[in-house]
């Protein structure tokens, strides 16, 4: 066949981006030794935002309840720990499993409707979990949060230190591993089908592919990723609060995803890092100024940069390459 039809290899690009995340993480370790708590929270939140990206960015289903899956993973991991499970890797596995089960149920409830009803269902679900967590204080600690988590050294070898170095490296390594696996999945045949479903599920059906099972699998996978993030946050902070299953956290995850660029795993990670980094600086001065900035940014992004701020880099490159003569539609 002619050279034109040779398939470009996408994996090299993924590898470069994965390496960039690793380098950024290592740079943070060196540059911000006193802010590793924040850095770890960024990493665990990246799990939440990436998990949301699978459902919203890839599968095309808007949800304002994703934190329910994150928080349930956190509560599950914390309870496993309080019941005697010390190994952090196993705790993350427990969180991921709980998140997967929750994701499957969440998907089964949400996928029965569409549009506004669907969006309201996602909100109602996260609120339901929030109210239940508040009530079931035996296993959640209620509004005080669940504390007393005591984590053993990773694999019996790496002890969690006072500065949070181990916690951060632990979160970073798991994030890199998760991103690597997800990069393969979104480029796999299943991932291709999923991206198509996100654009036009009806058309995918007429190709002979069932949509609902694929979406349920995606919700389960997404729940697993979110649950792992929740577990990592529980491990590194030692507490699980009600805010981890809140509507606010879900909405903020959506904001981070859209600012970073939905439908791109690395856009989701970049969005999380930039958003939370700026938030910690600006919010320290005045939390409400931060809200104004986020609000205005959202409006600007929706109107002018629909593919997210990280797409601007690509746009600039493309515009330079073709001297502004051609632009993608929309």
């Amino acid at each position: 066949m002619s050279a034109v039809t040779a398939r470009p290899s996408p994996l090299r690009g993924d590898f470069i981006k994965l390496a960039a995340v690793a380098l950024a993480g290592l740079a943070a370790l060196v540059l911000f030794p006193n802010d590793l708590g924040l850095m770890t929270r960024i990493a665990s939140s990246a799990f939440l935002v990436v998990s949301l990206d699978l459902v919203t960015g890839y599968a095309g289903i808007a949800t304002l309840g994703q934190a329910a899956l994150f928080g349930l993973g956190a509560y599950a991991a914390a309870n496993a720990n309080l019941a005697g499970l010390g190994e952090p890797i196993l705790m993350v596995a427990v969180g991921g499993l709980a998140g997967a089960v929750a994701g499957l149920i969440f998907g089964a409830v949400v996928l029965r409707s569409r549009g506004l009803a669907q969006l309201v269902l996602t909100i109602a679900l996260v609120q339901l979990v929030h109210e239940a967590a508040n009530k079931l204080s035996d296993i959640t600690g209620g509004s005080d949060g669940l504390s007393g988590i005591d984590v053993a050294p990773i694999l019996g070898a790496f002890r969690f230190d006072l500065y949070g170095r181990t916690g951060f490296v632990f979160a970073l390594v798991l994030l890199l591993a998760t991103l690597a696996v997800l990069s393969v999945i979104v480029r796999s045949p299943f991932g291709l089908k999923l991206r198509a479903i996100g654009r036009d599920p009806g058309r995918v059906r007429t190709l002979g592919a069932a949509v609902m099972p694929a979406l349920l699998v995606t919700f389960t996978l997404s729940g697993a990723v979110a649950g792992m993030g929740g577990a990592i946050e529980a491990i590194s902070t030692g507490v699980v609060g009600l805010d981890s299953v809140s509507f606010e956290r879900s909405a903020m995850a959506l904001v981070m995803l859209v600012l970073g660029g939905s439908g791109s795993l690395y856009g989701a990670v970049a969005g999380t890092a930039v958003f939370m980094g700026l938030e910690s600086i600006i919010s320290a001065a005045n939390p409400f100024h931060w809200l104004i900035i986020v609000g205005v940014l959202l409006i600007v992004v929706v109107l002018f940069v629909p593919r997210g701020l990280t797409s601007l880099a690509g746009d600039v490159r493309r515009l330079l390459a073709i001297f502004g003569l051609r632009r993608d539609k929309r």
């Binding site: 398939r7 290899s9 996408p10 994996l11 393969v184 999945i185 480029r187 796999s188 045949p189 299943f190 991932g191 291709l192 089908k193 991206r195 198509a196 654009r199 190709l207 002979g208 592919a209 694929a214």
Partner: peptide, 26 residues
Amino acid sequence: LSVREHIELALLQRTKRTNQFFAAIG
């Protein structure tokens, strides 16, 4: 999605491979 991805999706569907998670289409 690119033109190629459209065609690949249909080919993969016909050959019953769209439930493969880790295979590389390339």
